[in-house]
Nucleic acid binder design. Structure first.
Lengths: 212, 212
DNA sequence: AAGGCTGCTAAGCGCTTGCTCACCCTCCGG
DNA sequence: CCGGAGGGTGAGCAAGCGCTTAGCAGCCTT
C-alpha cells in the first residue's frame, strides 16, 4: 500500500492529530475508507493497517464513526481554507477564480484518497456531525459564489445563473476525487490547470483575464 | 417512500425485468442502495421494502451482488444509449453536444436515485461484472470524445485537450446524480439546459451554433 | 381428484461485525 | 523499590449479516 501521495508536497498532513498512535490509526482509516467505503471497512482492517490490535482503536476513538468525523472535519476545514484564501485574495475576479479552481482541484487530485472519504462518505456521519459538516460546505459554496458575483458586477464574467454555475463549478472540482488515479497520465498540477481554463470559459472570461 | 420520479416521464423503467416480484425487489433495491449505499443495505431491508420475506429475494436473484449488477447493467445500457443516440445524430457538432449533455443530465436528474447507484456503487461489483460495466463506460467516453473531435475538425470548437475535456464533461454530468434533489428548486429540464450551455462554453462554441 | 410445479415463508445456520473487558506491559516521580 | 497512570493486548459477547433449507399454499394440467 503506497501512501506517498499523502506525505509529499511540502506540508505534513494530519500533523494536528496526536498522539502518534491516534494519527497512525486515522491514516489507516483514510486509506481503508477510500478503498472500500466506510460501511465495508471493518475496525479490524483499520487496526491491522496501523499494526495494532482491534481493541487499540477504542483507546483513541469512541466509535468508528468518530474516526470518520475527525477525517471529514479536518478535510473540510482544509478545503474551505483553500477556497476562502483564493476568494478573498487580491486581483481580478478572473484571477481569483483561476486560483480557486486550480488549488481546489490540485488538492482533490493530490490527496484524492482523503478527498474521496471527505466528499463521498457524508451520509455515513451521525446526524449532528453531518449538519456540522454541511455548514462548512455551505461556506465553501458561498466563497465560490462571491467570486462569480464579483466578476459579474465588474463586467468580467457573463454568467446568467450564478447559483447554478457555482454548483456546477464545485461539482466539477469535487468529482476529481472520484476519478483521479495516481497511475493515470495527468499530474495534479496539469488537471488543476486544465480545469481552471475550462471554468474560466464557462463564465465567459477571456483566458488572458486570469493574469491578475 | 415516494418513487414518483421513477414512474413519470413517458417511458416505463424496469419494464424489462420480469416477473413482477423480481421487478418489485429490484426497485426496492435501487431505493435502498441509493439511500444508504450497497454495503449498508441489508437483504432484509430490500425484501421488507418489497413487502416480502428475506428468503424471497433468493428465488429471483442468486446473491445481493447480482441485484446490483442487474441494476448497474440496465442503467449503463440506458446511459450509453442516450449518449450514442446524440453522438450519431444529424446536425452540427455543437447541436449534438448540446443534445448529448442535455439528455444525459436530464436522465441523471430525473432518475437520480437509479443514477446514484449506477454511478457510485461500481466498486461493490464482483471483478468480472465490474469489467463488463467498465467496458460500457469506455464506450460512453468514446461517444463524447467523438463529438468533441468532430467539432474540432470542423472548426466549430476550440478544445486544446480533447481527452481531458471529455473526462470533465462526463464528470460534470455524472456528478448531477450526487447533488440533485427532487426537493430542490430546479427541474431536471432546467439543469439539462444550464449544463448544455456551460459545456458549449467550455468547448468555445458560440451559443447560437447549437441550433442545428 | 390427483399430482406436480411455482412462489413464497418461518426458522435458523455459520460467520462477521462493532465494541468491551480483564489483564499486562513500560515508564516515572517519590 | 514502589505504585499508579497511560497505552496496549487476547479473548469474547451480543447482535446482525448473507444465505439455505424444509415445508406449504395456490394454481395448472391431466
Amino acid at each position: 500500500m503506497d501512501s506517498a501521495e499523502e506525505t509529499t508536497g511540502g506540508y505534513r498532513p494530519w500533523s494536528e492529530v496526536t498522539p502518534d498512535a491516534a494519527r497512525r490509526l486515522l491514516v489507516a482509516a483514510v486509506e481503508a475508507f477510500a478503498e472500500r467505503g466506510y460501511h465495508a471497512t471493518t475496525t479490524r482492517d483499520i487496526a491491522g493497517r496501523a499494526g495494532m490490535s482491534p481493541a487499540a482503536l477504542y483507546i483513541h476513538y469512541k466509535t468508528k464513526e468518530e474516526l470518520l468525523h475527525r477525517i471529514s472535519r479536518i478535510g473540510h476545514d482544509k478545503a474551505l481554507e483553500i477556497l476562502e484564501t483564493a476568494a478573498s485574495g487580491p486581483g481580478s475576479a478572473a484571477g481569483r477564480l483561476d486560483a480557486a479552481v486550480r488549488s481546489f482541484v490540485l488538492w482533490h487530485a493530490a490527496h484524492h484518497t482523503t478527498a474521496r472519504v471527505v466528499q463521498y462518505e457524508l451520509d455515513a456521519l451521525a446526524p449532528e456531525h453531518r449538519s456540522e459538516i454541511v455548514e462548512l460546505r455551505r461556506r465553501s459554496d458561498a466563497a465560490v459564489r462571491r467570486i462569480l458575483a464579483d466578476g459579474v458586477a465588474a463586467g468580467e464574467f457573463d454568467v446568467p445563473d450564478v447559483p447554478g454555475t457555482t454548483l456546477a463549478v464545485l461539482s466539477l472540482c469535487i468529482d476529481v476525487a472520484r476519478w483521479f488515479n495516481t497511475a493515470g497520465r495527468r499530474t495534479p498540477e496539469e488537471v488543476g490547470a486544465l480545469y481552471a481554463d475550462l471554468v474560466l470559459r464557462m463564465v465567459g472570461a477571456a483566458p488572458e483575464a486570469a493574469q491578475k
